[in-house]
Computed example of a mutant assay.
Amino acid sequence: MDIDWNEAAATFDEDADHGLRDPAVRAAWDERLGGWLPDRAGDFLDLGCGTGSLSLLAAERGHRVTAVDLAPRMTERARTKLAGTGAEVLTGDAARPPVEGRTFDAVLARHVVWTLPDHEAALRHWWSLLRPAGRLILVEGVWGGAGIPAERLMAALAPLNAEARYERLSEDARLWGRAVDDERYVVVATASAGG
């Protein structure tokens, strides 16, 4: 499935779960994100950030946000949305984000893994960007013939010796602004405190 993400930027936030304009949808994502992120504010990397809606929630929780998207029009919108938060918004490849030498307390990728030509290599790289006890948060699913099944994603994480937990999200209509009948989930993988 080829999507022109620059073209999609103009209407991206119209989807309830992208723009988080509905207060109930926004509150539902904020609640979930709060449960996935480390308890203390830290350095947060949002890969494939789109227009920055989840980055904004993390910034509002006190995290120092770096957001990356491949599409310049998405990053333009993310910069506008994140203005005044201190967030850094970069244009670059989510699989190999332009953050050389930096590590993070949490790395989030929402509906990104399924778009990558070599998701296993990207997952290994993202894992290397985590500090000890850092969290890799992957929100994914299978919808309209696209996406990545949870079993496949969990299998790709197995070689990393990650402590991973799976949480089904399909049943929580508040997240999507409507009921959905496809597979939507999050996997939160935690790096060992020993490195």
Results as ranks from 00 to 15, higher is better:
Ile3Trp: 11
Glu7Cys: 06
Ala9Phe: 01
Glu14Gly: 06
Glu14His: 07
Ala16Phe: 06
His18Asp: 02
His18Ala: 08
His18Leu: 06
Gly19Asp: 01
Asp22Ser: 09
Pro23Glu: 03
Arg26Lys: 11
Ala27Met: 09
Gly34Gln: 12
Gly35Asp: 05
Leu37Ile: 07
Asp39Gln: 15
Asp39Phe: 09
Arg40Ala: 15
Arg40Pro: 10
Ala41Met: 01
Leu47Thr: 00
Gly50Thr: 07
Thr51Ile: 02
Thr51Leu: 09
Gly52Arg: 03
Leu57Trp: 09
Gly62Lys: 11
His63Leu: 02
His63Lys: 05
Arg64Tyr: 10
Val65Glu: 03
Val68Ser: 03
Pro72Glu: 15
Arg73Ser: 06
Met74His: 00
Thr75Trp: 00
Glu76Asp: 12
Arg77Asp: 07
Arg77Glu: 07
Arg79Phe: 03
Arg79Tyr: 03
Thr80Gly: 04
Ala83Asn: 11
Gly84Arg: 12
Gly84Leu: 05
Thr85Met: 11
Gly86Trp: 13
Ala87His: 02
Thr91Asn: 14
Thr91Phe: 13
Arg96Ser: 12
Pro97Leu: 10
Pro98Val: 07
Val99Lys: 12
Gly101Met: 08
Val112Leu: 14
Thr115Ser: 13
Leu116Arg: 13
Asp118Gly: 10
Glu120Phe: 06
His125Tyr: 15
His125Lys: 14
Trp127His: 04
Trp127Pro: 00
Leu129Gly: 11
Pro132Gly: 09
Gly141Thr: 02
Val142Asp: 05
Trp143Ala: 12
Gly147Asp: 01
Gly147Ala: 03
Ile148Arg: 10
Ala150Met: 05
Glu151Ala: 15
Leu153Ile: 00
Met154Ile: 10
Met154Val: 09
Ala155Val: 07
Ala158Met: 14
Ala158Ile: 07
Arg165Asn: 11
Tyr166Ala: 05
Leu169Arg: 00
Leu169Val: 04
Ser170His: 01
Glu171Tyr: 06
Arg174Lys: 09
Trp176Glu: 02
Val180Pro: 01
Asp182Val: 09
Asp182Gln: 07
Tyr185Asp: 10
Tyr185Leu: 10
Val186Leu: 04
Ala191Gly: 06
Ser192Trp: 13
Gly194Met: 12
Gly194Glu: 14
